[in-house]
Design a protein around this nucleic acid. Sequence first.
RNA 1: GCGCCUGUAGCUCAGCGGAUUAGAGCAUCUGACUACGGAUCAGAGGGUCGGGAGUUCGAAUCUCUCCAGGCGCGCCA
Length: 599
Amino acid sequence: MLKLSNAIGVQVQNALERAFPEATTTALANGKALNPQLAPASKPEFGDFQVNGALQLAKQLKQSPRHIALAIVEQLKTDEAFLSLCNSPEIAGPGFINLSLKNECLETEIKKQLKDERLGVPLTSQGKDKPIVVDFSSPNIAKEMHVGHLRSTIIGDSIARILEFRGYSVLRLNHVGDWGTQFGMLISHLKRVAPSALTTANAIDLGDLVNFYRQAKQRFDNDVEFQDASRQEVLKLQNGDSEALKAWHLLCDQSRKDFNQIYKRLDIRLTERGESFYNPFLKNVIDDLDNSGLLITDEGAKCVLLNGISSKEGKPLPMIIQKRDGGFNYATTDLAAIRYRFSESPKGDGAQRLIYITDAGQANHFTGVFQIAKRAKWIPKGGHVEHVPFGLVQGEDGKKLKTRSGETIRLRDLLDEAVGRAEKDLRGRLKEEGRKETENFIKHVSNTVGIAAVKYADLSQNRVTNYQFSFDRMLALQGNTAPYLLYALVRIAGIARKGGDLKAATEKLEFNEHQEFSLIKELLRFDEVIVEVEEELLPNRLCTYLFELSQVFNRFYDQVPVLKANEPSRSCRLALCRLTAKTLKLGMDLLGIPTLERM
RNA sequence: GCGCCUGUAGCUCAGCGGAUUAGAGCAUCUGACUACGGAUCAGAGGGUCGGGAGUUCGAAUCUCUCCAGGCGCGCCA
């Protein structure tokens, strides 16, 4: 309905300008056009659109809002094109104009939508050649993925999917923590307790590695001699020592295998490009900053002083780019990454926009890094950098999510539990209903429902707030949950199985019931929702839409017969079922959530 | 102390500067199964939108201020 609302927007604008020609000229001379403020109706009883502008224009035009509204309506009534789309406009309250679409217009629109594979969502017209980088997930080598990575991974994937669907070229980058002091520590510890792990592939699994990591960290914090040894290992690694490199590769491979299992389960595509990738560019970052006069030395460390951000003492906060010992830190890597991503190929990605999906706690860090990149002139004209923050994952007690013993929950275990609970629930239901299904079916459905529930629960919440994790709530069969949405699709599939030809002819469409029109209006909103989600980078808006669509469909399904209806209603209703299924499937796909025919 | 984020129904959350009724879901209560899967649908009760001030014709929404909570704050990432 995007095109339609644009068309009506133009018609209303023209009507306003015809009604008040002098004011229009004056306004244009001041560089501001009169704005009729066309918006979707705030409530269904107000129709489909409302014009709010009359109230604001009252002062400017020195007339009462109702009078202005009346003048606009008079003009609209002379517009043939407008009258072919909308019923006669109505003035309400202090001066709102309510517009409602004609049924014939809705029928024409829905007919178009039925034929459109993209369901009305336009392909982007610009910047297809320049990629958008979506930086998400980013686990650390030698550590297991935990709930902290869940949100970044799920939200990042969905945002990437939506941008891809809009026609952008998207670079999904996994900025894994594969470099830095922790490797010196880990290699030096393993050399002492498990030397075979550093030379033999698969000698130890990641679970062991995580334990080794903990031991190494503990030792590092308490043992000065060990710290020195670790630093030596880091230097060796950075200088390309073959033994150190081999050890590093083995550690990375081991971790990668584990990450990939998770990504496979979650159906996530990512290009791994870890911190180590930027290693060759770090020195240039320092030199560049030095040349542009941004770099200062403070307490032996090379820093850039941030504008407008002060430290505890009230002085400008320095951001350390090179440590006293000459080592680089994450700010250095992030700056190198920004520079590389914006640089033209082949020395970079030639990106138009960088999107970082990380927890809100890193907001200050990114503010600083972005500011430095801007001052160093690494962000080209038309280039954008954006931090897309999200809140903490909390348990039902409102505290940071942990196991009972207080440990971090592994992502693997969390997914297992979701799937396990879905399976238990399904088996119980099958028994209750006396249904018999194959083991394959049970496994497939439980897996799909479990993963869908985890993803949907996360995505359906506004990402900036903390997110309270609850298996019971996400797996609930009623309410705004994945199972509820999946069930709507299963009902449609059921109609098809019972002999409903969803591809029935749709040349002549005719609707009479209000439930049909509610469903049609909901279906036509899809394109606007997608475009809005793309602008705001808020996938929960898409979730809200899909939930509302499911509700409207369930009402339709409950109150209007499809298969038992007489023609032509039967075919017309089947067409609505088909479009509902397509919309739900596409919407879920853009969230990265798989769907089912039966459950 | 400074910075960022959050505060909306008993609970979990939506909410795009607009209509003298601020929306969902869960939970609670009342209804509807010889129609396509009742994993559903129809309805009811429940809110001084953290407090105060300001801008505006109009504020949950914008500004300021206070209160409460979370997270972060120079050589980890």
